[in-house]
């Protein structure tokens, strides 16, 4: 553990705080993921970890390696950009799939699909059927 002793105090304290913040946010999101009741509530909870949680941990990693190697180490931005792009896609796909499954089973918990309008001019204004 010699490399951690080389880190000056002004960098070590933010690294430690950012790591603890990110891990706490991930834990809070996962606890919410276990405790919330319906699937549509549960979709929201883990995003605490996927946005600011992983952002804090990546920032801590960037700061640590930048100070240790005395040059700008920014390759963690790859993971950050990738997470920012992919998280809404996966959660949107999952929520749509869950909505489709609930509707096809005739569940009362979800609103019914909007009626399909064919040829009407106002078809552009309504949301497309899922």
């Amino acid at each position: 553990m010699t490399h951690l002793a080389d880190l000056p105090v002004w960098a070590a304290i933010p690294v430690a705080l950012l790591l603890l913040l990110g891990a706490s946010l991930a834990l809070i999101g996962s606890i919410g993921f276990v405790r919330l009741r319906s699937f549509y509530e549960r979709v929201h909870a883990p995003t605490l970890g996927t946005t600011m949680g992983i952002g804090s941990v990546l920032l801590a990693s960037m700061l640590c390696f930048t100070v240790l190697q005395s040059r700008l180490v920014l390759h963690e931005i790859l993971i950050a950009v990738f997470m920012i792009v992919t998280t809404p896609i996966t959660l949107m796909l999952l929520a749509r799939a869950a909505l489709y499954r609930d509707r096809s089973e005739g569940s009362d918990d979800v609103p019914a699909a909007p009626p399909v309008q064919t040829g009407a001019p106002s078809a552009q204004d309504t949301a497309p059927p899922v």
């Binding site: 553990m1 951690l4 002793a5 880190l7 000056p8 105090v9 070590a12 304290i13 690294v15 430690a16 705080l17 790591l19 603890l20 990110g22 891990a23 706490s24 991930a26 834990l27 999101g29 996962s30 606890i31 970890g49 941990v57």
Partner: peptide, 21 residues
């Protein structure tokens, strides 16, 4: 001193993350 601080905070963060997993 900084190594001790960092080691403990990394250890705590790892415990929190394992609990989340």
């Amino acid at each position: 001193m900084t190594a001790t601080l960092l080691l403990w905070s990394i250890f705590l963060a790892q415990i929190l993350l394992v609990a989340a997993m």
